[in-house]
Design a binder for these strands. Sequence first.
DNA 1: GGTATTTGACCGAG
DNA 2: CTCGGTCAAATACC
Length: 359
Amino acid sequence: MESGSNLSWEYNTLINELTQGMENAKQLRFHLCATSASEVEARDLLLQRVLSSYENALSILNRNGSSSDRQAQIVGPMSGGPELSISADGSPRSEDLNRNLMRDQQECSPTKKRKLQPTWTEQVRVNSENGLDGPSDDGYSWRKYGQKDILGAKYPRSYYRCTYRLVQNCWATKQVQRSDEDPNVFDITFKGTHTCTRSTKAGPPPPSPDQKQELQQSPQTHQQPQQNQYQSLLSFKGNLRVSTNNLGDNNNYNETPAQFTFPSTYPENPDFHLGSSSSYCPSFVSPATSGTNSYFSPVNNYQSFGANRSNYQHFESDIADIISAHTSTDNSPSRGMEFPSDPLDMDPNFLFNASGFYM
DNA sequence: GGTATTTGACCGAG
DNA sequence: CTCGGTCAAATACC
């Protein structure tokens, strides 16, 4: 990359870091009077995130003009190696990803595009004592499209793709697999980043059917009575632990343990994926959209998918969904407290100006 | 009836 | 040929 874009990248990153820090600080304010253990834990997490955001911002300033070795890079296809920095919500540094992905999407076929998608892994520990058993919602809507028994693995691997693949040409996928060593740990491999503009739905998390599907206690056992996960989430959100690996060795972001974007739906099901959630704790809400750009711009490729009846159904419902999400977020009076979980959604300048950034 | 999941089949890479 | 990843028809759920 030429130095000019480096500088621009640094600038954008700096803004994002500072903004993220502010957002986390605001959330932290909500938790200052925390009483329950989970709230206290959430507060600690936020504190960590605030500190790391400002550390990152400072390090950018300190190195401004010098080599941008910390810069997130998307390297070769499926290298499995350190490719991305991870933001506090567990997503890759999106401004860079966005650039790279846009380039990839312009140049590549879907197949090739997928091969070029960044890959990173998170390990999520769940606490079965809470009656919950599955990795957290990461704020996006996922649809399961397959499950495979993996050779040598005790537990099957589940495959998810973004619900809005057809509608918004979002090629993000993830694989969820329970760890052999520790059944309370799930390895979640993300491939590709979300180019969709919606990450969460407003309103309380609907108990989605997929949350009943199970990779429960024993391998190949998939039935589990549905519990009141919504209640459980309230007490459980603070128990979430996310670690990342396969990230850049020379990447400062690694110092910050990636945290999921709260709140997390935390069904007992490792396969849960429907985004949603969020309304029970406004301080954790990530708005579905920034309400700014490109809801429909990438909607060109759905024809390339199978002329499957249900696919068209998905497409139609997604359109309606997006429209409603769009309007609702625009009209929300509470937006001031919130940022999209994925800065990718936003024009950095817009974010800077419109979010009440006090500078 | 609409939507999401399940699961065997299929395909490509190694 | 084997295995991982994806597709898509069948099925389940609401």
